[in-house]
Computed example of a mutant assay.
Amino acid sequence: MENILEVHDVYAGYVKDLNILQGINFRIAMGELVTVIGPNGAGKSTLVKTIFGLLKANQGKIIFKGQEITGLKSDEIVKLGMCYVPQISNVFSALTIEENLEMGAFISHGSLKQQKQRIYTMFPRLAERRRQRAGTLSGGERQMLAMGRALMLDPDVLLLDEPSAALSPILVNSVFEQIKAINLTGKAVVLVEQNAKKALMMADRGYVLESGRDRFEGTGKELLNDPKVGQLYLGAAYQDTRDEKSSS
């Protein structure tokens, strides 16, 4: 399967001469769901911000659809077919749901009726509350809106930075179901997650980062079953998985 996005030996950080990413390599094919896990400070969010042009790569290359995008700004990358949903501040609180969706299609010309209807079909709860201000929504609803807004331009690749952060277990399940549904439409999804077990269980492939490097790579199942990955990064979630197997 041909890769739609590739990261080659990328170094990047927030302070000059202090790289968080230390030669990261990453790839995703069209239609894949690839999750990125690892301990706090491993560089997970830094990776997707660098891919999306929010941080400048100090070294290495980022290739999207066969074109090098290293150094491009975010608005230029959006036009090429990639969107990003940050962990926080991902909706315009003072605007309604419908206005937020319209903001997501800021580079589109003409009527947005068809695009909005597509999002409302995918997220019925947003349709019911389309006139409601985003600031009054629950955490789960905000995540749905943030994803819906990113999908207004029908991107080929969607970058999600910890969408389950601070959500209740019920809402986490709902958001993950929506992420899988988005992936099943054929879009490539890069999922950065602290909820490692859930993320790996539904991922085609995964990466485990440590100290800014891609320490492990494999299918979601392989990483879940790897004792080194389990003991170092999954903790209780890894033990829960082993307990489930031993009791079945």
Score class of each variant (00 low, 15 high):
M1Y: 06
E6M: 10
H8Y: 14
Y11R: 09
G13L: 15
K16M: 13
D17A: 13
L18K: 12
L21Y: 14
Q22W: 09
G23R: 13
I24A: 13
N25L: 10
I28N: 11
I28K: 10
A29T: 08
G31Y: 09
V34F: 03
V34R: 05
V34C: 01
T35L: 02
I37L: 05
I37H: 03
I37C: 03
P39R: 13
P39Y: 05
G43W: 11
G53S: 07
L55Y: 06
K56L: 06
A57M: 04
Q59W: 02
I62H: 02
I63Q: 02
E68P: 03
T70H: 04
T70Y: 08
T70W: 09
G71R: 07
G71M: 11
L72V: 00
E76D: 15
V78D: 14
K79M: 15
L80F: 11
P86N: 14
S89G: 11
V91F: 10
A94F: 04
A94I: 03
T96K: 02
T96H: 02
I97N: 10
E99R: 01
E99Y: 03
E99H: 03
E102P: 00
M103Q: 02
M103I: 07
G104M: 03
F106Q: 04
I107G: 00
S111M: 00
L112C: 04
Q114P: 01
Q117W: 03
I119Q: 07
P124H: 05
A127L: 02
E128P: 00
E128A: 13
R129Q: 13
R129A: 04
R133P: 08
L137F: 14
S138C: 14
G139R: 09
G139W: 13
R142T: 12
V157A: 12
V157P: 09
L158C: 08
S164K: 12
A165P: 02
A166T: 14
L167H: 05
I179H: 06
K180G: 00
N183Q: 15
L184A: 09
L184M: 12
V189N: 10
L191F: 08
V192C: 03
V192Y: 03
N195E: 04
L200H: 06
M202P: 00
A203H: 03
R205D: 14
V208Q: 06
L209S: 01
E210T: 00
G212D: 04
R213L: 07
R213P: 01
D214C: 13
F216S: 09
K221L: 12
K221D: 13
L223C: 11
L224V: 08
N225Q: 15
N225D: 15
P227S: 08
K228Q: 15
K228I: 11
Q231E: 15
Q231P: 00
L232C: 01
L234I: 08
D243H: 00
S247C: 03
S248A: 12
